[in-house]
């Protein structure tokens, strides 16, 4: 793809109109950290770009009693500096902080990470863990899709041609409810997840887990919401035995591949370890929020 036409609409309506107005392959651009690289690698096919960063609502966020409403194009560097968001959704901020370098975070966005739909995307399991939803808009109107249903395959998602991701919505966590995200990479920074785990747990005043969501990444074609792992946590004090059961359930749910980053056996094992550790971090945070 070679960019032959660049458009910077000022409104969502204008952007939607641009998406269906051409015979040339048209792609939405947020930070461009994936799209610009992709456009250079297959430079034959002409590409029309619709840059969403001039649309104020795509770059902004709000946080109130209803929860977080995030403009999908806000760059990760700006997002990870939002202290009010970090207090309520520390796991999502953790995931956004893991995407690439400082430089990449200056451009890359959570919406872009989601729409690029890589199996190893860090923010996708983190979003699934907190029950995030995608508001999608197109010429036919709006629809809302849970993040776990948004991604449909490697680099594929449920958006139709002419649609764009308008908003990422997350309910406000109650006191006693918090999240965490961990990933494994063979170094400390600047790599792509070999496996990842996003967890949210809700504790009551007795320390009993009343709700949980366990999501794993980079161990299947898409990030997975693992209900059996959550079931192992619910109703327990998140003691070692229950957390070990959840870890085993996550390992069993994984269907990873062997590549240069890790083998099937290693990924299966490590995703369980990550679920265990992330659960304990989320538990500690949940206790502190009560």
């Amino acid at each position: 793809m070679a960019v032959v036409d660049y458009n910077a609409p000022q409104s969502v309506q204008e952007a939607v109109a641009l998406l269906s107005g051409s015979d040339i392959k048209t792609k939405v651009m947020a930070g461009g950290t994936d799209l610009i690289i992709q456009s250079k690698s297959q430079a034959v096919e002409p590409l029309r770009v619709v840059d969403l960063k001039h649309i104020a609502e795509m770059m902004s966020y709000s946080l109130d009693d209803g929860g977080l409403s995030l403009g999908p194009c806000m760059c990760c560097a700006e997002f990870t500096a939002l202290h009010d968001v970090e207090t309520l959704y520390p796991g999502l901020v953790e995931a956004a902080y893991l995407i690439g370098s400082t430089q990449v975070q200056g451009r890359a966005s959570i919406g872009g990470n989601l729409c690029n739909s890589s199996p190893a995307a860090d923010t996708i399991p983190a979003l699934i863990a907190i029950g995030a939803k995608c508001r999608i808009v197109g010429a036919g109107g709006e629809r809302t899709v849970a993040v776990e249903d948004f991604v449909t395959g490697v680099g594929r998602n449920c958006m139709q041609s002419g649609e764009l991701l308008q908003r990422i919505l997350v309910a406000r966590p109650a006191p006693g409810s918090r999240d965490a995200y961990l990933r494994f990479i063979p170094r400390t920074e600047m790599d792509i997840a070999v496996a990842g785990a996003g967890i949210s747990v809700t504790l009551d005043s007795q320390g009993v887990c009343t709700a949980a969501r366990v999501a794993i990444g980079a161990v299947a074609q898409t990030a997975l919401l693992v209900a059996s792992a959550a079931d192992a946590l619910i109703g327990t004090q998140l003691d070692d035995a229950s957390v070990a059961k959840a870890a085993a359930a996550a390992s069993a749910a994984a269907s990873p591949i062997t590549d240069r980053r890790g083998t099937i056996e290693f990924r299966r094992h490590i995703v369980g370890v990550l679920v265990k550790r992330a659960t304990l971090i989320a538990k500690e945070r949940a206790q502190a929020s009560l």
Partner: peptide
């Protein structure tokens, strides 16, 4: 801060 190669 960003990379100039990631900006059109």
């Amino acid at each position: 801060l960003t990379c100039a190669c990631l900006v059109l």
